[in-house]
Every structure is written in C-alpha cells, then in structure tokens.
Design a protein around this nucleic acid. Structure first.
Lengths: 110, 110
DNA sequence: ACACAACATGCAAACTTCTTCAAGTCGTGT
DNA sequence: ACACGACTTGAAGAAGTTTGCATGTTGTGT
C-alpha cells in the first residue's frame, strides 16, 4: 500500500481548504464552466483563479478541456457535491454546539 | 450574516487538512478517548498532539472534560463521521479517475 | 502576418501552519 | 508538602501556502 489512507484524506481536505476552491467546486458541481465564467462569479484575479484551478487539477478533482478559445472545467467525481453538503450539515451542527457552549457559560451558577 | 458560507466551509476543511487531526477524529468517532489513549494509537509527540487537539477544540469539533487525572475528548457533532466516509468515497473515485487518465495517456494513438 | 482574447506559468513577498523544546498547570498518591 | 503523571501553553525556526505582477502560450478574427 502506498500512502496511508488518513494521509490521503488529509490531503483531500487540504485541497478543499480554500474559499476560492470551494466556490469553484460549488459552481462546477452545478454545471461545467469556462474559466471566464468562473471569473465573472468569483471575485479573484485571473492568475489567482488559474493557480487555484491548477491545485484542483493536480489532485484530479477537476478536469479541463479546450473548446475553441475557451477552457471548460468540470468536476471529475460527482460525489464532491455530497462532501460539500455534508460540510454544510456539520457547519450548522457546529454553530448549534457553539451556541450551547455560550449559553452554558452565561448560565453557570458559580 | 457574518462570514460567507463558502469561507466557513473552507475553514472547516482546513481544520481537517492534517493527518494527525484526521486520525484523532477517526478514533473519536468510534468512541471517546483520553489523551494518553490517543497517544498510544497515534505516533506523535505529546505536545504536538495537544496542539492538534487545541485546533479541533477551537473550531468546536471536539470537546474535552477532565475525569480525575485524565482528560477525555469526544466529537461534538456526530455527523463528522459522515464527512470522513464521504471523503473515503471520493478518494476511491479519484484513484479511478487517475487510472483513466493514465490509461488514456498510455493508449493515445498519436 | 498581426493583434487580441483567453488562459497558464514563474516568481518573489507576505502570511500561515507545523514541529519541537522548555516551562507551566492541575490532580493523585504518600 | 513533595514528587509524579497527565496534559497544556508559549515561543521560535522551518516549511508550506497565497497573491499579484510580469511574461508565455495558444486559438480567432482580419
């Protein structure tokens, strides 16, 4: 076996750990987008977008192909959408937990 | 609204983007563990483990409480397990994609 | 052949994260 | 009160990431 599974997982999550890359994947999981379309929807410099796309390409999370003068990107594994949804669920769980912690702190008698 | 959702997601994933933290969450999603139990199962220095636990604590992904002389950690949001499973699914999807890419490259006629 | 649009790449500065060591806190047993 | 085990915290250097600018590459229209 090559890399331990937990390390591969860590690298996958690290790849997702950037706001621009999240937005890209959210947009691509709706439908394919050309780079200039992404550029319209994400506030970021073109070269920066290219860098972030390169990161996603290196991990094979997205693939690209030229169509005439534009380059179109798509997600390579549709389950990415599930991952983003699971994240959303956990996020609401987390704010609930943080709420509890806050309440506890405010209402602790001693 | 505070922080945009995609940024909160990115931070969640960033928190997961470290092998030790993945292992911790995997172990804790099975059952609660005291720090010295984690230490037996994860190859890492005690102070480093503490640092990683602190990261998970800051994001409220885990909570801790003392029981006598030991400190016991637990996951605060059980859905974390789903996220780890989703990651595993995507990972197998990814190696499949990478396999395809390799094949394509090897078999391209021109 | 030339100019232009659409992207990608190289690189350096600014910033963040990781790792380890030394020092500190908090219970437990004696 | 003292020593010890179980953890946590602070700090600093090493390592990795992010961002933007300048420069390249590759198609398209003229």
């Amino acid at each position: 076996m090559g890399v331990p599974l937990y390390q591969a997982k860590a690298e996958l999550f690290k790849t997702l750990g950037h706001p621009a890359r999240i937005r890209i994947l959210e947009l691509l999981s709706e439908r394919d987008h050309a780079v200039h379309e992404l550029l319209e929807k994400i506030e970021i410099e073109p070269s920066n977008l290219s860098q972030q796309l390169a990161v996603l390409r290196r991990t094979s999370m997205v693939v690209s192909h030229r169509t005439g003068s534009e380059v179109v990107y798509s997600v390579s594994v549709p389950e990415v959408r599930d991952l983003l949804l699971a994240a959303r669920t956990i996020l609401s769980g987390l704010i609930a937990v943080q709420g509890e912690l806050g309440t506890e702190l405010a209402s602790t008698p001693s």
